[in-house]
Amino acid sequence: MTTSAKPDSPTPAAPTVPPALRIAGLSHTHQANAGPLEALSNIHLDVAPGEFVVIVGPSGCGKSTLLSLVAGLETPTSGTLEAAGKPITGPGRDRILMFQEGALFPWLSAQANVEFGLKGTGLSRRKRRERAKGYLNLVQLEEFAQAHAHELSGGMKQRVALARALALQPELLLMDEPFAALDAQTRDAMLALVQKLWAQQRHTTLFVTHNVREAACLGDRVIVLSHRPGTIKASFRITAPRPRNIEDPLVIEAARLIKNALVEELDWLRLPR
C-alpha cells in the first residue's frame, strides 16, 4: 500500500544552488519574566527554492519563534540561519512574515497597506500603486482597495495581508498560523487561494500551523516539532497531486499519519486516541 505521506529522508540539495533557507543547530532561549525559557533546541532544516514547507507542533513548541528568527525579528541564542546562502542578521524585505492577526495598519486603506512596504524599494509612486493594485487583484479584493481594515471581514483582512506580503516579492514567505482565526469555509477558500498563488509564483514558503489537515493540504513537506523545547520530531513528504482539497482522501490519510506523530507529543495531556 502506498500512502501520500512518507517519512522524509534528507535529500542533499545540488551543491551549486544554495537552499532558500538553511537552519543549522538552531537553539533559542527566551528571557521571560519567570526566567529563561528554552523555546527551540538544535533545529536543522534546509528548504529548497520554491518548496512549500509546513511546520506543525503543539502550542508553545516554538513554531512562531522559529518564524520570528527567520524573519530576523529576533536573534537566535545559538546556531546559524542562512537565506539563499547569506547569513540572516536582521529583518529584510526578502523574508516577509504574515502574522496570525494580519497586523494590517488600521489607519491605512487596503491599497495603502499593500503599498506600505514598497516605499523605499526604489519604485516610483505610480509603479508602487500599480503593483499594489495588481496584488489586490490577485487576492480578488480590487473593489475594496479604499476600504479600511475595520470595514473588512476576517478573511478579507488576511487576503490584504497576503497581498501586502506578496507585493514585496519576497524570496521567502513566512506564514504564522494565518488562518487560525477564520471560519472553516473562509479557511478552505484561503487554502485554495494560497495554493493557486503558490502554483503561479513559486515563492518558497514556510508555513506554521497547529492544524494537521491544513498542513497536509498545503505542504510539500511537513515538519513535526516536539513539545517545548521544540526539536524536529518527524518529517513527512506529501506527494498527493495538487491542487489539494482539505477533504481529499489522500490529504486526510497524510493528516492522520502526521497526527500520530503529533499526538505522541501531547501524551502529557492524556488525550484519548
Binding site: A71, P91, G92, L97, F105, L108, F116, G117, G120
Partner: peptide, 23 residues
C-alpha cells in the same frame, strides 16, 4: 505587533516612528 510588522517590511528607526508608531 505594528512595530513588528513595520520592521518586517524593512522599515526602522525614525521612519518606523513616523510611518507606524505615531499613526
Amino acid at each position: 505587533l505594528y512595530a513588528k510588522a513595520g520592521r518586517n517590511m524593512g522599515v526602522s528607526g525614525v521612519r518606523l516612528l513616523v510611518r507606524v508608531t505615531i499613526p
